[in-house]
Design a protein around this nucleic acid. Structure first.
Lengths: 402, 402
DNA sequence: TTAATTTGTCAACGGCCATGACGAATAGGC
DNA sequence: GCCTATTCGTCATGGCCGTTGACAAATTAA
């Protein structure tokens, strides 16, 4: 039988698994693992109370997760209250690992994160990649990956997947880089150029950065806007704890939101786009700084040093950002706006004018703007954690391996 | 046991029901009903083939749905191919009905829609409501509701819920109107002023209009932007077949997206908001028309009559809309933009300049802009159908009643 | 009339969680 | 030191639910 012509599944099921008993089992495995992962060491009884299953059911689920190497038994708990003490369970630190990789404009980085969320291995290679062909860059990256994987394997971890953060737009297939302006890459399928030993995901670094914020920073709401400026100015939109990708996967192009409709022409075909006011090139020109490899650091140093020209340029960029974000906040009603990537370091000089625009243009309480605490680590960590989350969300998918 | 401190459910489950056997049954009931609803009369075997369950399982599910009055047996099918002919099943037209209501600035409307999607009863009351207190308006509305319900009941339908579309912002509780500028209502809980005989939902008319577009117009994609102008200018954002509501439920405020950051001051506190260029008041002023009850119709007549001043005003409004939508499209990457509400009637004069901005400011294929086919019926139909969809999505929720 | 095919149903079965009972392991009271 | 209350983990049993396999019914094709 072929696929039905219409959508015949009810809305609520979403991407849920088939509504079969195995699907139910699968989801319950995930709930048990999630519960232990989120709330530290826990006894079987503790898990049962939290997720609403019986102790007996949790026992069989836990057995399965232990056999799969995802949970570990720590032995008897310190008895805090009367009654037989439970046997503490933890997520294993010798099970699957998420391998995250980042292709930056002037560096490559790879790391391995275990199920507990700890970084267990990492490798970095400094050096500009602007204009280098994909082949050599990915050869270098593959070398780093193999080094990190080897180190992870010495720690009895095994890679459950590879996620790569790139500074550019990624097609819906999750493998092809459509356009990476700062690398000069066009329509490059990374799948053929990277080791095929593990499931591969490729995504925009802004998206991974936003997910890192969501997963790793306490207090991050489930609806927020994560703005970063590495490639132009990108926004990752998180709705109910999930990335909003858009119909073609190109959502979040904040850089080309019109700020002054009659402003200077932009490469995108429009006029007065945000990038012409707050993009790296525009800001450095306004600041009288010659663009180079790490312009951002230079700007930051000059601003810290009190260079009034640089500060004024950043103030103006903040104003433009505030105008564009006013539109975005009106449309999306996020709980917060988070400045990440290069913007985080420059925030002391961007924020005042940005917030002035945002509050001045809104009635009622303005949307709070915060600065990412992860700094430039976000995309790499987000990539590695995305693999870990995939395992936590469906442990059965890796139960067969080891 | 109290609620767990963290979110311990894996992401994929979304709003899914508890992962129990009854939950599975519930979802499968929904899948069967959905399947019959979407693909016309179908035999049990046909349903089984489509949703991937066995004929035996479908049989018991169908029995339950028939007992609940949601499905009907039509008798033997016309045998098209060899083999015993199946017994055709249809969604019942004597089961639950969705009651939709609309509070417009100058009319009230109520209708009843059966499970098949047919409008089975309706009532309208013309007359302006601008500035009337909520009490009298809702009394009038209640009278219309009772009339429609009585008519539906004569057709052996029973109301499964009441959904009310209002021209204003609605709080997250789905009952309270936070602000309805054109009615002059503030923080009004409609729950206490409407019949409490059925589950009540209150939502923005733009949201219901967008849902109507999604559910009733063939070819509507699952990711689109629905722009309407009744209260200011609102956009309903549909992502993967679901409304994007935002953290506070206020998403879609397109009217206050900055179009010219140094433009005229707006009541919202900002400057140069879209509403100052394309809002009803701004357009009628630019056109030299005195605002009154049904300004939109007046503008439409004048434009049709060839009034160059009105046409120029609408062109300018289209330009402003195009600028604001460029920002929205860049952020959200929708598959299409749909003009609904009052904008649909004015589209002949808005579209050219709107599309010129949109295509001129984008590289690659521009996001297509279409005009709603539902006209002013959208919100009312969307409201009624939202109740019907709720039944289709979880038939067990109404199985007890009748 | 016979063979082939498809439908709807039934009985038996297997997977999965709930129920209830049990031994094990602890704290507190005497 | 001993007994009771409490909690933990496990086991056997049962109920719910979809699957499997078989069968009668109803149709077409030969």
């Amino acid at each position: 039988m072929t696929a039905p012509p219409h959508e015949t599944r009810p809305r609520n099921t979403g991407r849920a698994l088939p509504d079969t008993q195995q699907g139910m089992r699968r989801r319950n495995l995930a709930r048990v693992l999630h519960s232990v992962s989120a709330e530290g060491p826990l006894s079987r009884a503790g898990v049962a109370a939290r997720i609403g299953l019986t102790r007996a059911a949790v026992s069989t689920l836990v057995d399965e997760l232990i056999r799969a190497g995802l949970l570990e038994e720590l032995g008897p708990e310190r008895p805090a209250r009367v009654g037989r003490p439970g046997s503490a369970l933890t997520v294993s630190d010798r099970g699957p690992a998420g391998i995250g990789a980042e292709i930056g404009v002037d560096h490559l980085a790879v790391c391995a994160v275990d199920l507990r969320g700890a970084v267990r291995a990492r490798a970095v290679r400094h050096g500009g990649n602007r204009g280098r062909a994909p082949g050599p860059v990915l050869e270098d990256l593959t070398a780093l990956i193999h080094r990190v994987v080897a180190e992870a394997e010495r720690a009895e971890l095994w890679p459950a997947g590879l996620a790569v953060a790139v500074p550019g737009l990624v097609a819906g297939d999750g493998r092809t880089v459509v356009r990476a302006p700062n690398l000069d890459w066009l329509d490059t399928d990374l799948g053929g150029l990277l080791p095929a030993d593990w499931p591969l995901t490729v995504d925009n670094e802004a998206n991974f950065g936003a997910l890192a914020e969501l997963w790793l920073v306490d207090g991050t709401p489930r609806d927020f806007l994560h703005v970063s400026a590495e490639i132009g100015i990108g926004a990752a939109i998180v709705v109910d704890g999930d990335l909003l990708r858009g119909a073609r996967g190109f959502a979040g192009e904040l850089g080309h939101v019109p700020v002054r409709p009659d402003g200077p022409a932009c490469a995108c075909g429009g006029r007065g786009c945000l990038e012409r006011y707050a993009g790296e090139e525009a800001v450095s020109r306004a600041a009288g700084v010659e663009p180079r490899g790490d312009t951002v650091r230079l700007l930051q140093e000059r601003a810290e040093g009190g260079d009034e020209g640089v500060r004024a340029a950043l103030r103006d960029a903040g104003t433009a950002l505030g105008i564009a974000l006013t539109g975005a906040v009106n449309l999306l009603d996020p709980e917060t706006v988070v400045l990440g990537g290069a913007l985080a370091g420059l925030s002391p000089w961007l924020l005042p004018s940005l917030e002035a625009e945002l509050t001045g243009r809104t009635t009622g309480p303005a949307c709070p703007v915060t600065v990412s605490g992860l700094g430039s680590e976000g995309p790499l960590l987000g990539a590695a954690h995305s693999v870990v989350r995939a395992v936590l969300d469906d442990p059965a998918s890796v139960a067969g391996r080891s």
